[in-house]
Write a protein that binds this DNA or RNA. Structure first.
Length: 207
DNA sequence: ACATTAAGTGATT
DNA sequence: AATCACTTAATGT
């Protein structure tokens, strides 16, 4: 478990993490944080994956990105240092192991440990990049590309080309309607890129 | 066999 | 791309 951390952080920092962090195993579907809640801890995903999404005023959901092993949430850095309430919701996508770091250590570690600082910078950069990507996908209204991206991500996260999802679930993740998703999926199926079943999508070729 | 839920489709905005 | 209305197919009881 710590092997992953070893490759990223310096020894002294690892000791500190050992002392200050709390480790927890999270069951699939567990909500880690919801909107409005104040962030008090920074999560680092060790195994599994966590889905981070935005919910609008009408309760409509929009998937932002996944946290994979050795990734953390950029929102948590910015939010919790200033004690701002969360603007996102995070739910465990599968059974996961997560390390929680208290916010109190943030300032101190940033100056003390170069590997921590670069970790923080890397994750902020990575998330920001990811966000920009989804933003201009939405701006240019290319839902088909968003769907392809979504399916690829799902396959990567789940480690399998077989996705157990209903069209409905896909639609809520992408904040659109089921009918639209069904049509796009059908189009992809006709292009022999995937096969459709009830509550299941099997990816065949390159999307 | 019947009810419920998921998926497919044409027409309309 | 979204919504409506409706059909068809798969699943659960």
């Amino acid at each position: 478990m710590t092997e992953l951390l070893n490759t990223v952080f310096e020894p002294e920092l690892l000791e500190e993490i050992e002392k200050k962090a709390s480790f927890s195993s999270i069951k699939a579907g567990t909500k880690l944080i919801s909107i409005g809640q104040t962030v008090r801890q920074v999560p680092i995903v060790l195994s599994g994956s966590v889905k981070v999404s935005r919910i609008d005023d009408d309760g409509k959901e929009l998937l932002l990105y996944y946290l994979n092993p050795m990734e953390s949430c950029a929102m948590s850095f910015t939010c919790c240092m200033q004690q701002f309430p969360s603007e996102i919701e995070a739910v465990a996508e599968e059974d996961s192991e997560v390390l929680f770091l208290p916010i109190s250590i943030m300032d101190e570690w940033l100056v003390k440990y170069p590997t921590w600082k670069s970790f923080v910078m890397r994750t902020i950069h990575a998330r920001f990049h990811e966000l920009l990507k989804t933003v201009d996908q939405i701006a240019f209204q290319q839902l088909d590309e968003r769907l392809a991206h979504y399916l690829k991500e799902k396959a990567k996260v789940g480690g399998s080309p077989v996705l157990n999802l209903s069209h409905e679930q896909i639609a809520t993740d992408l904040a659109t309607s089921r009918v639209v998703i069904s049509r796009l999926l059908k189009k992809l199926e006709n292009q022999k890129k995937l096969l459709l079943y009830r509550n299941q999508v099997r990816i065949m070729g390159e999307l």
